[in-house]
Amino acid sequence: MRRLSFPLVLLTASAIFAAAGSAREKKSGDDRGVTSAIAQAPLATRDWQNPYEGQPDAIAAGKKLYLRHCAECHAKDARGRGRAANLRLPGVQNATPGELVWFLRNGNLWRGMPSWSGLPVERRWQIVTYLKSLRR
């Protein structure tokens, strides 16, 4: 039992340490962080064409993917939650689809946005198509 309790204590301590550390981090909630992160996208990404632009099926698929992968942090209505950015704000909506798909691939690891390079690029484009549809 002693051998089992030590790792459990270790796990609990790690979780509390990581969570308490995150709690001290400054909340943003606005789009400053995401805007500056998107601004790091190479210029060439502005010319990338969204193969699914405006397609209703892609918007629906993108919404499904958004709810599955993104909504827990950015909220179901994409208006953000806590430190996660509001994706309806100009900083995101004025970015080109290419810049957004680049940002999804790279994330912003220091600020807690994971890299989604594990999703096939086709699915990242579908998510971007859905996000762009929120502008209307």
């Binding site: 270790l10 990581a18 690891l109 994971p114 890299s115």
Partner: peptide, 16 residues
């Protein structure tokens, strides 16, 4: 396995 994303760049994991 208990796997936790502590940071975007750090994952910690406990195995029994």
């Amino acid at each position: 396995e208990f796997e936790y994303g502590a940071k975007g760049w750090w994952t910690t994991e406990l195995y029994l």
